[in-house]
């Protein structure tokens, strides 16, 4: 995604449906619109591994920005990370989990929820089984914002990323239907559709995802992102001290700000392309 967004465009704050963006010339040639914080208070990050959110293409800076603005945040680590590092399965799980808790603390996340499926074996876990766990968590935590892997990302060779992306992408809307897992309702939970969803994906695996929004970060957001990145010492020992500063600065330069991250954003009406224009024009405050 680097070296793509060259053309200059006036800075504007939007978060609107992707339909408006597609009307413009090829996305890759443009500076992206800068996203505002979505209205809300609760953020759920669903990832496959202990460190997914802390990569340069991950959500670290944006998580820091949202918690700084008052969001409560929860991190779901879907697997047990037993294979990430060469220190043995059990120890890998333990240390990676411990470092995940430390990293998320830097970002202002209040809890790491570990589902502990076996690392790199998620291709063999039934989709609907994973999705059911996420639906339950969404109904319990009622997030306004979900951050997860892009279900349509290309060329990601990690089976856990693919499965988590698809299961979380579906859980985000299916949690809103009362006839989905009605047993949850019997336990007092209520349906809840996540209105705002952000997807990340490695962009250096070929075409990957084409992002549609840039998130401006403050120096403090980047400092916390950097700290979270380096908290994962088990897998990142020896990484350059300013790795995240450098990456966020490069992305920022492409979009006309000092620091930034880029994502694919789905607005609250993106699932209704035939009604989104009406809703954007005609909805009023009560």
């Amino acid at each position: 995604m680097r070296n793509q967004h060259q053309r200059s465009m006036p800075k504007r704050r939007v978060y609107h449906c992707c339909l408006l963006l597609l009307a413009a010339a090829p996305l890759a040639a443009q500076k992206l619109p800068l996203g505002a914080n979505p209205e809300g208070k609760r953020l759920l990050i669903i990832q496959s591994h202990h460190d997914d959110h802390t990569w340069e293409f991950g959500f670290g800076g944006f998580i820091a920005r949202l918690t700084r603005s008052g969001y409560e945040a929860w991190y779901v680590r879907t697997t047990n990370d037993e294979k990430d590092s060469g220190i043995g399965w059990g120890r890998g799980d333990q240390i990676n989990h411990k470092e995940s808790v430390e990293a998320t603390r830097h970002l202002g996340i209040k809890e790491v929820i570990s589902l502990n499926w076996r690392n790199d074996h998620m291709d063999s876990v039934p989709m609907n089984e994973v999705r059911a766990h996420y639906i339950l968590l969404i109904r319990k935590l009622r997030p306004d914002v979900l951050m997860t892997w892009n279900p349509w990302g290309h060329y990601d060779r990690n089976p856990d990323h693919r499965k988590v992306a698809r299961a979380a992408g579906e859980a985000a809307w299916m949690a809103g239907l009362a006839n989905v897992h009605p047993e949850h309702l019997a336990a007092g939970l209520k349906p809840h559709r996540v209105p705002y969803v952000y997807y990340s994906q490695r962009s250096d695996y070929g075409r990957g995802q084409v992002p549609n929004i840039a998130i401006e970060l403050s120096a403090e957001d980047v400092r916390r992102k950097e700290a979270a990145f380096h908290a994962h010492q088990n897998v990142r020992r020896g990484s350059p001290k300013d790795a995240m500063d450098k990456a966020s600065r490069e992305t920022g330069e492409q979009h006309g700000v000092r620091y930034a991250e880029v994502f694919y954003f789905r607005d609250e009406w993106s699932h209704l392309p035939g009604l989104a224009p009406l809703l954007e024009e005609s909805v009023v405050k009560r």
């Binding site: 009604l275 809703l279 909805v283 009023v284 009560r286």
Partner: peptide
């Protein structure tokens, strides 16, 4: 169902669609 979900979402966030 589409109409009710839209209205429910708007109501829960202090908004309305006159239609």
């Amino acid at each position: 169902a589409v109409a009710m979900r839209i209205r429910d979402r708007l109501e829960s966030t202090g908004r309305r669609l006159p239609l």
